[in-house]
Design a protein around this nucleic acid. Structure first.
Lengths: 204, 204
DNA sequence: GTCTATACATGGATAGAC
DNA sequence: GTCTATCCATGTATAGAC
C-alpha cells in the first residue's frame, strides 16, 4: 500500500516533468522541430518512459492541449457571470481573459504557432473553441448594454469585434514583445477609449 | 546569345517554381516539418537544383522573407503619404495594409507561425519591422489629428493601439476563418465605431 | 516502470556523371 | 544546370533485459 502510493507519486512527478519538458520544447521550437530525444533528456528520463505514459509524441501534445483548454473553459464560465454595469463587465471579462492568457503564455504561444500558422504535423484539435466562446459572451454583454441603454444601438457584432480586437492585440503583445509595449492597464485604457470614442468632429 | 537568354528564362522559371513550392509547403506544414524532398518534388525538379539556386533550405526561406518584406515596405511608403482628413487617412492606411495582407496571406501565415509561435528551426529574421513601422505611421496620423483638432486629446499611444488592434484582428481573421466573419468593410466600420465611441453614459 | 540497444524511415546535403 | 546515387545525422518507435 505504502509502496503503491509512493509509486504513484513518483509516476505523477515523472509525468509532470515530461509534460513540462515537452511544453518547453514545443514552445521554443515548434511541434515538428521538437524531437522526443530532447524532451526525455530535459525530463531526465529515457524514451520508453515517454511512450509508456503517453503512447506517442502526439499523445503528449494532446494531453497538453486538453489540460490547458479545460482550465480556460472553467475560467470563461466564471467570467461570463460577471456582474455590474456593462462597462464594468466588459472590463472584468477582458482583464480576466488577459490574466488567464498571461498565466499560460507558454502554451498559448504553442497554440498560436499551430492555429495561426500551420499544423507542423501536429494532430488536429478544436483550437478556436475558446475564442468563439469569448465572442459569444462579449456579444451577450453588448446586447445587454444596448437593451439597458448603456450603449448606443450600434451593430452588436461590430461592437463585439471592436472589443475583442483590443483584448486580442494586447494579449498578443505579451507574446511577441519583451517587455510588452502595452499591458493589463493599457487594455483597460483601450476599452474605455473605444467605448468613449476619440473623434472630435462629425460622426459619419 | 539566344541560347543564353533562353537559358536564363528557364532558370528564372525553375527558381520561381521552387519558391512557390517552398512557400506552399512551409505554409501548410511549417518550416521544420517541410522537407526539401517534397519541395523539389512539387517543383518538378531534383534536390541538387534547389541547392544550386539557394544553397540550403534556410536560403530559400530567407529569399521568400526578403522578397515579401521588400514589397510590403514599398506599400507602407505609399500608404504613409495618404492625404485627406485624419479619419480618411486612418481608413485609407488600414485598408491599404489589409489589402497587402490579403494579397500575401500565404506568406503571412508562415510569418505568423514563426514570429508568434516558435522558430521551428528557421533562421532569425527581423519579423516585427513592418509592424513597428505601422505603429509609427499611425501614431503620426493620430498626432496630426490631435494637433488639427480632429481628434480628442487622448493619449497618442493608446489611440494608436486601439486603431492597430482593429486592423490586426480583422487581418488575423482572414488567416484563421473561412469564410472570415469580418472583412474589409467590417474593418472600416470598426474604425469609425471606435472613433465615434459607442457608450451612452458618462465617460469615466 | 525504467533501462540499453536497436530497428527502420526520413531528414539535409553532396559527389560525380552528363 | 540537372540528373542518379549515396552519405550520414537524426527522427520516431520498440524489443527485451532488469
Amino acid at each position: 500500500m505504502g509502496q503503491k502510493v509512493k509509486g504513484e507519486r513518483v509516476d505523477a512527478a515523472v509525468r509532470q516533468r515530461l509534460l513540462a519538458a515537452a511544453l518547453d520544447s514545443f514552445t521554443r521550437k515548434g511541434y515538428a522541430a521538437t524531437s522526443v530525444r530532447e524532451v526525455v533528456a530535459a525530463a531526465g528520463v529515457t524514451k520508453p518512459v515517454l511512450y509508456y505514459y503517453f503512447g506517442s509524441k502526439e499523445g503528449i501534445y494532446l494531453e497538453l492541449m486538453n489540460d490547458t483548454y479545460a482550465l480556460f473553459a472553467k475560467r470563461l464560465d466564471l467570467l461570463a457571470a460577471c456582474q455590474g454595469s456593462v462597462r464594468e463587465r466588459l472590463i472584468a471579462f477582458c482583464t480576466g481573459c488577459f490574466d488567464g492568457f498571461v498565466e499560460h503564455v507558454q502554451v498559448v504561444r504553442l497554440i498560436y504557432s499551430i492555429y495561426f500558422g500551420s499544423s507542423q504535423g501536429a494532430p488536429p484539435f478544436p483550437y478556436e473553441e475558446p475564442f468563439d466562446r469569448m465572442l459569444e459572451i462579449l456579444a451577450g454583454f453588448v446586447r445587454d448594454g444596448i437593451a439597458a441603454g448603456e450603449l448606443v444601438a450600434v451593430d452588436e457584432k461590430d461592437a463585439t469585434w471592436a472589443i475583442i480586437s483590443c483584448l486580442n492585440t494586447v494579449m498578443e503583445e505579451q507574446l511577441c514583445h519583451t517587455p510588452p509595449r502595452i499591458d493589463r492597464q493599457g487594455l483597460v485604457r483601450l476599452l474605455n477609449l473605444i467605448l468613449n470614442g476619440f473623434s472630435q468632429g462629425v460622426k459619419p
